[in-house]
Amino acid sequence: MMMIYKTKDLKKMIPMYLNGRLSEDENREFENALESNPELADELNDFSDINTYYQGMEDEIPQPASNLYSRVISNIRSEEKKQSRSLTADTADSIREFFTNTFSTPRLAWACAAVQFAVIIVLLVANPIGNNEDNNMITLSGPNHVITKNAVMINVVFNAETKEKEIRELLNRTETNIISGPAPNGVYILVVSENKNVETILEEFDNSPIINNVGVVY
């Protein structure tokens, strides 16, 4: 379909006509208009002078050096090296900065305190046995014993030189168990098995060379 262009629009097409960037249709219509439009022809003439200037212009420009591509490549290589050096330096700087910032401020101390506090809370929640009043004096290394209401307990103070092996032998022989101790004054609390005679045990403890003091807990 034929487009009707105004002279103003046709004039704007002149540079594109001269540089070959008009479409085939635009080119044909431009040339048709040119035959009957002297104003357009004058304008084309002005631009043609400019176009003439560019004919052979390439020959007038001094040619670039023949090694330009290799210079481009070596520039790229050197930039890449620089970038990698700067990345390494950046990493080192970041680490240095991290340590400087960490140790030069009270943040680390506060963080440690917070972690410790959190650990304490977690342990308290996870191990509520410590909150149990009946059990809070249980010797940690000893076995857990079920203590009935009628169970008899004995206070014992061992000799300072007594060996653990000797204590174990005595406890096994008498079927007694440490349930608490030592207290600051060296007292252990022992529980007597229900099938044992307390008096006999007390007598044996009294006669034992490894025990300094013995008495029933009331």
Binding site: P15, M16, L18, N19, G20, R21, D49, I50, N51, T52, Y53, Y54, M57, E58
Partner: peptide, 25 residues
């Protein structure tokens, strides 16, 4: 023509270069 071209501003030279030498739209 060459002399006249050298007398116009670089801004104008540049746009004419792009049209007539680089054949841009």
């Amino acid at each position: 023509i060459k002399n006249a071209m050298s007398k116009i501003s670089s801004k104008h030279q540049e746009v004419l270069d792009l049209v007539f030498f680089h054949e841009m739209n």
